[in-house]
Amino acid sequence: MNIFCTPLINRMLEFENYIIRPLVLEDLDEFFNLIETNRERLNDFFAGIVSKTKNIEATRVFLKEVIKKQESKQYFAFVVVDNTTNKLMAFIDLKNIDWTIPKTEIGCFTDKKISGKGITTKAIKTFLDYSFNHFKFKKIYLRTHHSNKAAQTLAEKCGFELEGIIRMDYKTTSGKIIDLMYYGLINNK
């Protein structure tokens, strides 16, 4: 089956009381609220998303860009939805995709209401299986700052291995250029 002709998720990924599905334009208000509620804690390390979602209209433009990039297989954005409340609880994206390897970077953030409860770890494990099987990635990596202990713990719980530290690798929203820790996960199937 050609992955370029198949829908992103032809069935919703489920775990516990949550589903993972592609981010869609109809998520505008909920997505903006998720960002707005968590903006302060996302500010430095989700610079692109934070800067492109300053108000509802800017968020609409951002979502349209995301959908266009998904259609061209350059970028994929997903949300974790609470099945009981239908609220967006987390965001997961696949970016910096290199189809020649094939590999991608995974990013995620969780609503502060569920942070630290293990939900993100379960979501990422479910999503990694899907990404390796559906997209046929050979490698998925994530980058994080040494101060983000939660991301480091998440990476390790999900089987990623620390591959190294890349110096002067990321510019925060405040303009500071920082080092990042690189974690990689190889698909041995």
Rank of each mutant, 00 (worst) to 15 (best):
R41D: 12
I106V: 12
T100C: 09
P102C: 14
R60A: 12
L25Q: 10
N43P: 04
R39T: 02
F32D: 01
E65N: 14
F135I: 09
T104S: 15
Y18K: 00
N83T: 13
E16A: 15
N10I: 06
Y18A: 04
G48I: 01
A58G: 09
H134W: 14
E65S: 12
T84S: 12
K73A: 02
E16P: 15
R60Y: 11
A90C: 05
F15I: 10
S72F: 10
V66G: 09
I49T: 13
K136M: 14
L13P: 15
T120I: 09
L142W: 02
T104D: 09
T85I: 10
K69L: 14
V66R: 09
N86P: 11
T144M: 06
M12Y: 13
K113S: 05
F109S: 02
H134A: 15
A123Q: 04
D82A: 10
N86C: 13
A58I: 08
D44I: 05
T121V: 07
F62Q: 02
K52I: 08
I101H: 11
D44V: 02
N10R: 04
S115F: 12
N17P: 13
Q74S: 13
N33V: 12
S131K: 03
N2T: 13
L63P: 00
K73Q: 06
P102R: 04
T53K: 01
F31M: 07
N133M: 14
R21E: 10
S72D: 12
K52P: 01
K139A: 13
N38C: 08
F32C: 00
F127Y: 07
K122W: 01
C5P: 09
G118Q: 02
E30H: 09
Y18E: 04
F15V: 09
K117F: 09
F46K: 01
D44W: 06
I9Q: 15
N83F: 08
L142T: 00
R143V: 07
H145R: 10
T144V: 10
L23S: 04
L94V: 08
E40W: 11
N96C: 04
A77T: 01
F91R: 05
N38G: 07
L42H: 01
K87A: 05
V24N: 06
I20D: 03
F109E: 00
D111V: 06
A77D: 02
K139R: 15
L25R: 07
T59A: 01
K136H: 08
L94C: 07
E65M: 11
I114Q: 06
L34N: 02
